[in-house]
Design a protein around this nucleic acid. Structure first.
Length: 268
DNA sequence: ATAGGCCTGACG
DNA sequence: CGTCAGGCCTAT
């Protein structure tokens, strides 16, 4: 079974969490092989631990242990998690865990931007991150409070200290649905525009999760299928606006590609 | 607010 | 060859 995203934002990590849960919960780690010394996991601490659940915070996947503490995985740009029965190491494999069921969990990451670490508690990570859009804290009034003092709209969405989980693709998609220009300044938003933005966040993320994530490269689902949201993207990587049929513009903001329809998302 | 660095592969 | 890529951190 291959669980390969490769464009891991919140929806992709959530799909991963859901699909890995039945395979991993209750499993004991028999062996942990950390091939990449880059990954800061001390030797010998994972063996014998039992995975209690799979949780997600923003783009982080957490494996809390029955014995306390948790393993944290961040996929970076190209990280993948694969469950396999085979013992042969995969290309770009950075870590491998042998589980009590006999299956192996392998962490594959060509560009090595991904991270594996060990945490005392979920709260340690939570303190570094803003509100997860699927936590009970994600209310309109909390959202409004986050907007206070912030500047450019797209930067706000990408900063994980505000909201945790939105990346470059979904930022463009959310702003399209909210009909807001990526360079709009936050303090210029009307109440109605704030509400549109708030609702667009969950709408886009919900649909992306329902479609099993976005596959722009070579993502394979467990049965060999791809995720489906790449077929539902409105502006990211597009040239024509699905709403007004006008041209979609690509603009570089904070050295990241940003797509929007200047007609439907006016700056003024 | 922006550029650069971390890495490697894919593509022109 | 050169350019680009969905993340994130640090330094100007």
């Amino acid at each position: 079974m291959v669980y390969n995203k490769g464009m891991p934002e919140l929806p992709e990590v959530e799909v991963l969490r859901r699909e890995l849960t039945p395979v991993l919960v209750g499993q004991r780690i028999l062996e942990a092989h950390i091939a990449d010394p880059h990954l800061g996991v001390p030797k010998g601490v994972l063996e014998g631990k039992t995975i209690l659940a799979l949780e997600r915070l923003g783009k982080y996947l957490l494996f809390p242990f029955e014995e306390g503490g948790c393993l944290v995985v961040h996929l970076g740009m190209t990280g993948q998690l694969e469950v396999t029965k085979e013992n042969a190491p995969r290309k770009h494999e950075r870590a491998r865990f042998v589980l009590s069921s006999g299956t192996h969990l392998s962490f594959i990451d060509p560009r090595r931007f991904g991270k594996i670490s060990l945490l005392d508690a979920k709260e340690t990570l939570q303190r570094k991150l803003g509100i997860d859009p699927y936590s009970p804290d994600f209310t309109f009034s909390r959202f409004q409070a986050l907007l206070e003092g912030r500047k450019r709209l797209k930067d706000f969405l990408l900063d994980q200290r505000n909201l945790a989980g939105i990346g470059n693709i979904y930022a463009s998609e959310i702003l399209f649905w909210a009909r807001l220009h990526p360079r709009r300044s936050i303090n210029s938003l009307s109440l109605e525009e704030q509400e549109r933005l708030f609702k667009s966040i969950r709408k886009v993320l919900d649909e992306a999760i329902a479609a099993k994530g976005t596959t722009i490269r070579d993502f394979r689902r467990p049965g060999g299928e791809s995720g489906g949201f790449q077929n539902l993207l409105s502006v990211y990587g597009k040239t024509e606006c699905p709403r007004c049929k006008g041209p979609v513009v690509r603009e570089v903001l904070s050295s990241r590609s940003t797509y929007f329809c200047p007609q439907c998302q006016p700056l003024a």
